[in-house]
Simulated assay, not measured.
Amino acid sequence: MRVVGAFEAKTHLSELLAAAEAGETVTITRQGTPVARLVPVAGSTRAEALRRLTRLRARLAQHGRALSREEILSARDEGQR
Score class of each variant (00 low, 15 high):
Ala61Trp: 10
Val26Asp: 07
Leu38Trp: 12
Pro40Leu: 05
Pro34Thr: 10
Gly23Glu: 09
Gln31Pro: 00
Thr54Pro: 00
Ala18Glu: 15
Thr45Phe: 01
Leu56Trp: 08
His63Tyr: 12
Arg69Ala: 07
Leu38Met: 11
Arg52Trp: 04
Thr45Gln: 09
His63Arg: 15
Thr54Lys: 13
Leu38Lys: 04
Arg30Ser: 06
Ala58Phe: 02
Glu48Leu: 03
Thr25Val: 15
Thr54Cys: 01
Glu24Pro: 04
Pro34Glu: 12
Ala47Glu: 13
Ala47Ile: 03
Ala42Tyr: 09
Leu60Phe: 06
Leu16Asn: 01
Thr27Cys: 03
Glu21Lys: 11
Arg46Cys: 02
Val41Leu: 13
Arg30Ile: 02
His63Asp: 09
Thr54Tyr: 06
Ile28Ala: 04
Ala20Tyr: 00
Arg57Asp: 12
Glu48Trp: 14
Arg55His: 11
Arg46His: 08
Ser44Val: 09
Ala22Val: 08
Leu38Pro: 08
Ser44Arg: 14
Arg30Lys: 07
Ser44Ala: 08
Ser68Cys: 03
Thr25Glu: 15
Val26Cys: 06
Val41Trp: 10
Ala20Asn: 00
Arg37Ile: 10
Ala18Trp: 13
Leu67Asp: 07
Thr25Tyr: 10
Arg55Ala: 14
Ile28Asp: 06
Val41Ala: 09
Ser68Phe: 03
Leu17Pro: 00
Val35Thr: 14
Val41Tyr: 10
Thr54Gln: 14
Leu53Ser: 11
Val41Glu: 14
Gly32His: 01
Thr33Gln: 15
Ala47His: 13
Ala49Tyr: 13
Gln62Asn: 03
Ile28Ser: 01
Arg65Leu: 03
Arg57Ser: 12
Ala22Tyr: 06
Gln62Trp: 05
Gly43Ile: 01
Gln31Met: 06
Arg59Lys: 09
Arg46Gln: 10
Arg37Gly: 07
Glu48Tyr: 14
Ala42His: 12
Gln31Ile: 03
Leu16Tyr: 13
Ala20Lys: 00
Val39Lys: 12
Thr29Ser: 09
Arg46Ala: 09
Ala22Lys: 11
Gly43Trp: 05
Ala66Thr: 10
Ala20Gly: 01
Leu53Thr: 10
Leu67Trp: 01
Pro34Leu: 08
Gln31Phe: 10
Ala42Met: 08
Val39Phe: 07
Arg65Glu: 10
Ala22Cys: 05
Ala61Lys: 15
Gly23Trp: 04
Leu67Ala: 06
His63Lys: 15
Arg37Leu: 09
Ala42Asp: 15
Val39His: 04
Arg57Lys: 13
Leu60His: 04
Thr54Ser: 12
Pro40His: 03
Glu21Ser: 10
Pro34Ser: 10
Val39Gly: 02
Gly43Leu: 02
Arg30Val: 07
Gly23Ala: 04
Leu53Tyr: 12
Thr27Ile: 12
Pro34Cys: 08
Leu53Ile: 07
Arg69Met: 03
Leu56Ser: 05
Ala36His: 04
Thr29Gly: 01
Ala42Ile: 02
Ala22His: 07
Ala18Pro: 08
Ala47Arg: 14
